[in-house]
Amino acid sequence: MAANFWASTHGQYWMLDEAALRKSRETDLKYLKEIELAKIRGEDVYCFVLNLTSWFLYLVIAALGRRLNVRQVIIATAITYFKRFYTKNSYKNTDPYLVAATCMYLACKMEEFPQHIKSVILEMKNVTADQGGFGYDNQKVAEMEFYLLEELEFNLIVYHPYRTLKTLAIDLGQKSDVIQRAWHIVNDLFRTDICLVYPPYMIAIAAVGFVIMIKEARANHNGIDTRTRKGNGSVGGVGSGSRNEGRGISGIKELKQWFSGLQVDMEKVLEIIRNIKNLYSQWREVNEIKAQDVLRKLREAQNKS
């Protein structure tokens, strides 16, 4: 079913902006301030901690997905459901683990790869074994599904950048390392809220742009003139795979030319590329223990109320 993204509910109702996302975190932020005022200061720190939490929950969902042996698209759908749900709810008031398991369960059904509700719960128990466990039975998950469906307003069809990457791969050649790398970057981007803010095809293009950028930076670093065609494709041992493709584009100059020929809002794409950069610069700071700690506090608060 080739449908139009802009006519879909994803394009119509689920393109949010940063302000909306910030607003959706208010309850959690307020609570964190209450309990941890003495320890951490500053709004940004709280935001960072919450982003960290969302990063950590990505890992939980991805781990669950891998245990269930589902495709990347299903993981991406589950994470998008999860993020959409938490634009309207707070971690403090709903257990993110329950929501995560339910999102995965629903995403599997939605993407025609149904899983037994019990195996989702079982794997969720395994994944969360060292993080306080998962104490829900199928009835609870089934009930949660209703709330999830309600919060998602039955907008279940989610578009992902992978599809655009496949289309771009026609230009670049199926084996193009650019696409491969962009694919990995798109996977990584589900750690952030980017999928809620930008249209998926822009995310895909930005990921490709980022890869080209890195390639060029590396080539410059190695002191090779990118303006000459000679020896371009094999810089740093990459790009050689696409040479045999015939239609593939591999030289940096050609790649840049091809990229600038894409008719897309480049301002937005640059914004996303900045986000990608942020993501990777944060990578080292991410502290899973800290995230677990925050998450535990939020979950405790929920048990109290």
Partner: peptide, 27 residues
């Protein structure tokens, strides 16, 4: 939704860590 892909990483790969370092080097 279930179309096959030629990309090997289609199956739940979490591959970020390797590239994190790589991109940080060019940060």
């Amino acid at each position: 939704s279930g179309s096959t892909s030629s990309f090997t990483d289609d199956r739940g790969g979490d591959s970020g860590k390797a590239r994190a370092g790589e991109s940080a080097a060019f940060g």
